[in-house]
Write a protein that binds this DNA or RNA. Structure first.
Lengths: 150, 150
DNA sequence: TTATATGCAAACTTTTTGCACATGC
DNA sequence: GCATGTGCAAAAAGTTTGCATATAA
């Protein structure tokens, strides 16, 4: 049914890891998720269907997926950490007012990697590209209201 | 003498903030610093000349400089936080083995901002661009040794 | 069957906060 | 002189760890 979920499960199996209900539950929250959730947000979401899961298990699963290169862990300056199942090079537009993060696919990012590898003898494995500012919604709002800003 | 230090001190004065010995000490550590130090590393460095300073004061000073846009606070996925007095758009090459961070000035980053602003109605204030991989030194080393990897 | 994973609670790390005292302007 | 800043210590927040029990393969 969900080929992306199947792909994640296969990757676990191929790595010699068990495919447990808890891991499936976390994967289901992540598949196709563009909201860049925190560990706790993932935990709260998973608990709806799987009330007995612990936050520690969520952290352990995210750590596992991160090590397998299937999830990016994004640490922000206010020490919030968000997770992104989208690991291809892309640009994150981070709104400083409402905290919303929008993904933008910009082809020039790939050439950036090539330029650096040619010029500096640095072997690129992955990347993280962020612009901070105001999203279109917040730009047009009259009054600034603090929110969950990453 | 140090015009960059003077510039920082002027910025504090213009913001209505006091120029204290503690703040000067932190600024001296930051001026021209390309090592992307952590708060504790800055604290340890400052203590050599200023043994009575507290870590809380270092944090408060960094917070102030961050709010004034004079320092970037870089949160990483292993919850280490590094500070960079270099606020112009540039690329950080982060070595996953030894933790070294190299600055690279790539002009295409500026056009990236323009492309995004034109295409997406997002108002860019600042940016953060990172490539993760192996630096030239670590590429040529035979055995992997874990280190302070951001 | 058995190596691996889970849940719990405690530990840990890093950063923030409240407050009395000190000090730059 | 007074608003602002400092140092201390305690609190907060987020993440990790140890271990007994449970379970996927």
């Amino acid at each position: 049914m969900d080929s992306e979920l199947e792909r994640f499960m296969d990757i676990l199996r191929e790595g010699g890891y068990k495919v447990t209900p808890q891991r499936i539950a976390v994967l289901k929250v992540l598949v196709g998720n563009r909201t860049h959730p925190s560990a706790d947000q993932i935990y709260q979401e998973v608990r709806k269907e799987h009330p007995m899961i612990s936050l520690a298990t969520v952290y352990k699963t995210l750590e596992l997926l991160k090590e397998m290169g299937q999830v990016m862990e994004l640490g922000f300056s206010n020490r919030s950490t968000r997770y992104d199942p989208q690991v291809d090079p892309h640009l994150n537009l981070v709104c400083l007012r409402c905290g919303f993060i929008e993904d933008v696919y910009e082809t020039s990012l790939n050439s950036l990697t090539n330029v650096v590898e040619d010029a500096s003898n640095f072997e690129v494995h992955s990347g993280r590209f962020e612009l901070y500012g105001l999203c279109s919604t917040c730009r047009s709002e009259p009054v600034a209201v603090a929110a969950g800003v990453p």
